[in-house]
């Protein structure tokens, strides 16, 4: 067993709005081991980003996180902003869909990357400069010495994403959180970036959290996955278990909503309806209005995330077989 680098217990995130409170993440628990890739999957608004922003101490001002997120022996949620600033980048780093959110548009690449090493790791200017070029080369930027003199806007989207990955890796974090890192990229460039992630986890033992809505991406590189719905994890397990034998109707529905490159015209069996508003969650299982397999109990009681087969956890009362025909019939009603 590899060492656990992140242990999250009962993480909840609440946002205060005028009169009300919104629970964007509820009771999330998971562990991350050295060198593994955990995919976090779910539709927009399901709490994927907020959960990890909370762990990074990057929530908006009206947000508050409770629970524990233990990395390197300390609870990240209990640290002050100042302490977190210091650890951020060193223990844990995060990259985003739009690299421009992390890059300063008015500084040359060389300068902003070197700054990270000087500030966080006390490097001298010269040493930092050399290390920056090495890292740019490592992430596959051609002619790194030349590119380092560019401003972020002078680079293509794929190159910018590489620069951001280089920046995140400078302090050799144990955990890298990538929030939809390839969503804005073309497929050929996406393939390059995913390759790079694979090398990083293999060669450096970096643990990767990959937040994505693309099940194809998940199948290609993740070891385990966690499916989120309305702020909660509804199913967790190995990628193979969840793809070949999903036990939660939401996971099952997502899989049948995804068109395959390899077959044409097979009618999709989508999940009906829309994701709920967090402020008006239905009683019982939050998925029940869209679920083709629901029964009485689902309408009144909330299913807990409990062990099912093998290492898998599912939050669903239904114990029968999940059948595509049921999805199709239900959608036709």
């Amino acid at each position: 067993m590899s060492a656990i680098v992140l242990d999250v217990q009962d993480l909840s995130v609440n946002f205060a709005l005028h009169q009300r409170e919104v629970k964007a993440v509820a009771d999330l628990s998971f562990q991350l081991s050295e060198g593994e890739t955990l995919a976090v999957v779910g539709e927009s608004g399901s709490g994927k980003s907020q959960a990890f922003l909370a762990i990074m101490g990057l929530l908006a001002r009206n947000g508050r996180a409770t629970g524990r997120a233990i990395a390197g022996g300390t609870d990240l949620l209990a640290l002050s902003r100042r302490e977190l600033d210091k650890r951020r980048g060193r223990d844990i780093a995060m990259i985003f869909q739009d690299p421009m959110t992390s890059l300063n548009p008015s500084l040359k690449i060389r300068k902003q990357l070197a700054e990270v090493l000087i500030r966080h790791r006390g490097y001298s200017r010269e040493r930092a400069a050399t290390r920056v070029i090495e890292m740019l080369e490592r992430v596959g930027i051609p002619e790194p010495a030349k590119r380092a003199n560019a401003y972020p806007h002078e680079l293509s989207g794929g190159m910018r994403q590489r620069v951001m990955i280089a920046m995140a890796l400078l302090c050799e974090p144990k955990i890298l959180i990538a929030d939809e890192p390839t969503t804005a990229l073309d497929v050929t460039v996406q393939a390059q970036i995913l390759d790079l992630f694979q090398e990083l986890t293999d060669d450096f033992g970096t643990a990767l959290v990959l937040i994505t809505h693309d099940l194809g991406v998940v199948a290609g590189i993740a070891d385990r996955m966690m499916v989120m719905y309305a702020g909660r994890a509804v199913e967790k397990g190995t990628v193979d278990d969840l793809f070949y034998d999903p036990r939660h109707p939401y996971t099952f529905g997502l899989l049948h909503s995804t068109p395959h490159v390899e077959e044409r015209g097979v009618r999709l069996a989508p999940i009906k309806g829309l994701p709920p508003s967090l402020e008006q969650l239905p009683p019982g299982c939050a998925f029940n209005p869209r679920c083709a397999f629901r029964f009485d109990r689902c309408l009144s009681e909330r299913p807990l995330l409990i062990p099912r087969v093998r290492e898998r956890l599912s939050a669903c009362f239904y114990e029968g077989e999940l059948k595509v025909e049921t999805l199709v019939e239900d959608a036709a009603e």
């Binding site: 794929g158 050929t188 460039v189 996406q190 099940l215 194809g216 199948a219 193979d240 793809f243 395959h260």
Partner: peptide, 21 residues
């Protein structure tokens, strides 16, 4: 380069990778 939503197939596959953009 298109990701396949099938873990076993995805692992077996070789990608004819393209350089650059």
């Amino acid at each position: 380069a298109v990701p396949i939503a099938d873990p076993k197939r995805a692992r077996e596959r070789t990608i004819e990778g393209l350089v650059g953009e």
